[in-house]
């Protein structure tokens, strides 16, 4: 389920070989491959000035972008992963966890909490793609459920921001079961008529798309975000054909009726704020 990550890193390796980009000053766009001035990208909420591609942003930047400054309070920050399968491939899962925790400073791939958006309280969950490809294991599943529980308890809207390669293989069947857990959690919100808004960012795949991400009352996506069930590489191998150019981009999903709106990052806060006002 985490196919996409692989594909991307392969691309990135290739790019690094071809074009030497000076560290720091310049950035290479993941989508149009243009070399762009880093400061300009950062000024525009990490959006490519040439093609409007939305670069991945950190959890902290995402929270600042969506919530009123300084209003975020994190919930259950100490939840950490276990290794119930004693999983080992070329590396031990426990080593992978440790490496990810050290490089990201996070316990796992999701941060949840509450804050205000133009004064209105919401519950918020944000994936951290940098932590093992934003994969969903027991901790991510539990945090999604806790965010939904909190929204239900406080009777405030839930907003989830997704970037994920899918279920975390290293937790095996327990990862798969997080799909059922998170879907059940948002179904309790639906029964209580608590609004739930999902923001799908690049990339969102596998068990995350096929559970709580696609179950929101309103589904927004960032421009050009890749969103799907199966990763492009798996599909290509299955059908033995090249995929259409804009396949699985947010624009493709909008055209096929799978999402409500594509919203540029700069307009996300006002859009979510406006939507929340309707409920």
């Amino acid at each position: 389920m985490a196919w996409f990550k692989k594909e991307r890193s392969a691309h990135e390796d290739e790019d690094r070989k071809k074009v030497k980009v000076p560290e720091g000053l310049w950035l290479k766009c993941n989508h149009c491959r243009a070399i762009v001035y880093r400061k300009e990208v950062e000024r525009s909420a990490k959006v490519c000035p040439k093609c409007e591609y939305h670069f991945p942003i950190s959890v902290e930047d995402r929270i600042d972008l969506l919530l009123d400054l300084g209003t975020f309070r994190e919930w259950s920050p100490d939840l950490a992963p276990a290794d119930p399968l004693h999983f080992k491939d070329t590396k031990r899962y426990t080593d992978r966890i440790q490496a990810a925790q050290q490089s990201t400073g996070k316990k796992d791939a999701m941060v949840i909490g509450e804050g205000r958006i133009n004064g209105n309280r919401i519950a918020l969950g944000v994936f951290h793609f940098g932590f093992m490809g934003g994969s969903m294991g027991s901790v991510v599943g539990e945090k999604v459920a806790l965010a939904a529980d909190g929204a239900l308890r406080e009777r405030i809207p839930l907003v989830m921001v997704t970037t994920s390669g899918g279920a975390r293989m290293q937790e095996g069947i327990l990862s798969l079961m997080q799909m059922a857990k998170t879907a059940a959690a948002v179904s309790r919100l639906a029964e209580a008529r608590i609004p739930y808004i999902a923001i799908l960012a690049d990339p969102t795949f596998g068990g995350v798309t096929a559970s709580f991400a696609m179950l929101a009352d309103v589904i927004l996506a960032e421009p050009k975000a890749l969103i799907g069930f199966a990763g492009p590489r798996v599909i290509e191998q299955t059908i033995k054909q090249q995929l259409p150019q804009e396949f699985q981009r947010a624009e493709f999903l909008l055209e096929h009726g799978m999402i409500d709106q594509i919203v540029p990052r700069k307009r996300l806060k006002e859009t979510v704020s406006s939507l929340v006002g309707f409920f």
């Binding site: 799909m179 309790r188 798309t209 096929a210 991400a213 069930f229 199966a230 299955t238 059908i239 096929h256």
Partner: peptide
């Protein structure tokens, strides 16, 4: 099935909807 048509017609949504519905 991981296919183009499956993605176009919302494979992820179809699966998610079943999980959601079966939960209750």
């Amino acid at each position: 099935y991981p296919g183009i048509g499956a993605e176009e017609r919302g494979q992820a949504e179809a699966i998610a909807r079943n999980l959601f519905t079966m939960a209750s």
